[in-house]
Design a protein around this nucleic acid. Structure first.
Lengths: 247, 247
DNA sequence: TACGCTCGCAGAACAGTGTTCACTTGTTTC
DNA sequence: GAAACAAGTGAACACTGTTCTGCGAGCGTA
């Protein structure tokens, strides 16, 4: 998939190399990249709970123990999957006039990446503290927030808040997806109808607000709910903006 | 611990009941409450990853299979542990003049409850969607937010945001705690010093903001960081307040 | 008192997990 | 050709959640 050096697979083998290359071509060499690729295939097909080293090995047609030559543990495999989240996912240089849009865009792309693979948010969630892959992002995020004129204390808290919001939101989405899968609901719309019915059937004397607001909670798309939460956080942050150079 | 019907354990047995009660007293009857209690003991001592049905059974001096007479699965056990979070944890009636403080107080108590037991945030996080125990809380939270004059769309999004923030924050705290445990750091202060040193040692040309802000991120207590994040969210919410009855 | 019956728990078992280790096997090098 | 080396195999260990059979004490009834 994303590993390098696969381009020559479709090329015919030169006759004078045939004798040498044939035996080597029978087994594609096992690499960490291929293991991570296979892990994503298993993750998407089986989900996080059924992602086991044995399943990954089976996907590659290889013994389990072979994986441990390239990956120290299942945890390290998760770390490499986590690192994939950040491939080519960059923050722009600070543009103080547009800082809010810059951060929103960053968050949107982050959520999109988390939703690319099933249960990916669960893997990401287990890595919230500062990992080396995350540091450059936090650095640039802070650059943007500082350029906007936010006090340092707020900047320090905001980085965590934004990534926690992204992870938490995508995590919830994963959970609804899984619930949908275990139910008979085939589509997301069908699921929403079921949920809305459930809330409508709640005793209105004990849950007046829930009954009345169920429309809001389930008619909106996840995208617009995500967007609204983002806007709330950014308005809160913006309220801390103070002029930088009172010249 | 919190289960009912344990009050008579310290009472002496009446002599005329002694002959009858003795054999029964040899084995304290196994109940779901006792199983949940034992699960919390194991959780606090061993952590989430080592919390197994066999450990819980051992804690009670009982065979594993005996647990399944009172609890259908490990997942159901988690649900009962999760339900304990909400015992006697209520929201007040709406007081429109104080809505921000009411919500802050709710969030503070929620975080405190999550921190009462090791890794409790991880269990809570797995239950984010609407469970029956949560519904009354969401209902009252919405009542407060609506009384404050927030538009319905914002109210519907805010409930999720606040609980996600609580869970996410406590979850991160759990992770730092675990990292502290696996490191040799005995106290939290010692851990903070280590972290600060790590950030100070970062190449200042590539991470100027991180180096400069490391002081902010690790000198503050978790409580004040939590408080600041809460304030940011509430300022964002408050920006949506609109007059209710333009009379 | 003796019988049988029910119910709560014990023990073993099944299928699955992460991880390790002694072993082949295919390939290269001397 | 023989020796060395790396890579992958298969079996094993110590676990996990869950289920099934069976025992044995307590109860109601004859």
């Amino acid at each position: 998939m994303s590993g390098p050096g696969h381009d020559d697979q479709n090329m015919p083998v030169a006759p004078w190399e045939r004798a040498r290359k044939r035996p080597a071509a029978v087994r594609v060499p096992l690499t960490r990249e291929r293991i991570v690729d296979a892990a994503f295939v298993v993750l998407d097909r089986e989900g996080f709970d059924r992602l086991s080293m044995r399943q990954v090995a089976a996907e590659l047609g290889v013994a389990v123990s072979a994986l441990y030559a390239h990956v120290e543990s299942k945890d390290e495999l998760f770390q490499h999957m986590y690192a994939r989240l950040f491939d080519g996912y960059e923050l722009p240089d600070p543009d103080p006039a547009n800082w809010q849009e810059q951060i929103k865009d960053y968050a949107r792309r982050g959520r999109a990446r988390l939703l690319e693979h099933r249960d990916m948010a669960r893997i990401s969630m287990a890595h919230v503290p500062f990992t080396p892959e995350l540091l450059p992002h936090v650095e640039r995020l802070m650059a943007i927030l500082r350029s906007a004129g936010l006090p340092d204390k707020v900047v320090a808290a905001a980085g965590d808040m934004i990534s926690t919001y992204m992870d938490g939101f995508a995590f919830e989405e994963s959970m609804w997806e899984e619930r949908r899968r275990t139910t008979q609901a085939d589509t997301w719309d069908e699921m929403q109808v079921t949920l809305k019915e459930y809330f409508d059937a709640l005793p209105a004397d004990r849950f007046p607000n829930l009954v009345e607001l169920s429309r809001m909670m389930f008619h909106d798309t996840n995208d617009s709910r995500f967007e609204l939460g983002l806007e709330i956080i950014l308005r809160g942050l913006a309220s801390y903006v103070q002029p930088r150079d009172p010249a």
